[in-house]
């Protein structure tokens, strides 16, 4: 079809990008938002804390989005994609906040690259620079597995975001206030499916208990405290996850009780020399996840293809 007069695709390049449903330009998700760091707060520490919360959301979002077209029915497929989108939105704001607090955390890209800071953080860091909990990164299993993972994850994240609404950092407080509303829907979805599978057939019950047993050792990391979290909690900016432990336990026990499932009796998965996901020590699953998530961006670091 193409000849010297040009290709049929000519009209798609350049000109008015608003012809595209979602545009083609990068935009700043914090445009116009006051990103001043509160007095007395270390910029690098705030950035590191935002990476923890942002990476949890980003990696969980990636695992949920891998469910696209694979759920048992269309409604649940859409539900999982919606929850992935909510978490991706949270990740985008949190990574942008990390970069605004301390540009030093953003990987260097070629001069003139239009790739925004939050994308550079998502696509150009190595596994050991990610600060997410290991629960978010382990490979997907069956439908019961994603239900259990989402229940454990969202129970802890909701309790944390509830408290983070009072953060001295206005950006974190705003992200939390919005996130509470979203993650409440995620937790309810996971709780209802947990109950449904537990009280369903022998097979659904068996699969649910197996998933819970497999994921339980990773639950503790959600409510364990990293020194950075303790430091920022003291500064009134962050939340010590340990302060959410009772509330998280109460919610999980409520789900277990109505579902007729015993709380697992398995020890937390130890770190490596005491180091866990929050320290950048991950399972090999994260490297595989990142290989797939980052491959296109890394092939085009100048943001054009």
């Amino acid at each position: 079809m193409s000849d010297e007069s040009g290709s049929i695709f000519d009209g798609l390049i350049g000109g008015d990008s608003s012809q595209w449903a979602f545009g083609t330009d990068f935009e700043d998700p914090l445009a116009g938002v006051d990103t001043t760091v509160p007095d007395g707060v270390d910029h690098g520490e705030l950035a590191g804390y935002c990476l923890m919360l942002g990476d949890d959301a980003l990696i969980m979002s990636q695992r949920l989005s891998e469910w696209c077209s694979r759920a048992p029915d269309l409604e649940e497929d859409i539900a999982l994609a919606n929850m992935a989108l909510d978490l991706l939105g949270q990740a985008r704001l949190l990574l942008a906040r990390a970069a605004a607090a301390d540009p030093g955390v953003v990987p260097a890209l070629p001069d003139g690259s239009p790739v925004p800071a939050e994308d550079a953080l998502a696509f150009f860091r190595e596994a050991e620079a990610f600060r997410n909990v290991r629960l978010a990164e382990v490979a997907n299993g069956d439908f019961a597995h994603v239900v259990v993972r989402l229940l454990l994850f969202s129970a802890a994240r909701l309790a944390l975001l509830e408290r983070l609404r009072g953060s001295a950092d206005k950006v974190l407080a705003a992200v939390a206030a919005k996130g509470v509303k979203e993650v409440a829907y995620h937790r309810d979805w996971a709780g209802r499916w947990f109950l449904t599978l537990a009280r369903g057939t022998d097979e659904s019950h068996r699969r649910l208990v197996a998933a819970l047993d497999a994921l339980w050792p990773l639950q503790d990391e959600l409510v364990a405290t990293h020194p950075l979290e303790r430091s920022l909690a003291r500064a009134g900016v962050g939340v010590d996850p340990a302060s959410t432990r009772d509330e998280v336990d109460a919610v999980l026990d409520q789900v277990f009780a109505v579902s007729g499932v015993d709380r697992p009796d398995r020890a937390p998965l130890a770190g490596v020399g005491g180091r866990t996901g929050r320290h950048g020590t991950h399972t090999e699953a994260l490297s595989r996840l990142l290989a797939e998530m980052q491959v296109v961006a890394r092939a085009h670091p100048s943001g054009r293809w």
Binding site: S17, S18, F22, E27, G89, Q90, R92, L93, G179, E182
Partner: peptide, 24 residues
């Protein structure tokens, strides 16, 4: 003109379109 908008949901992909439509 300075227009302020707020997302309905954090991940709302329509924000970019809203921005473009307002500008145009």
């Amino acid at each position: 003109v300075i227009v302020s908008i707020t997302p309905t949901y954090t991940g709302c992909p329509a924000m970019a379109t809203m921005r473009d439509d307002l500008v145009h």
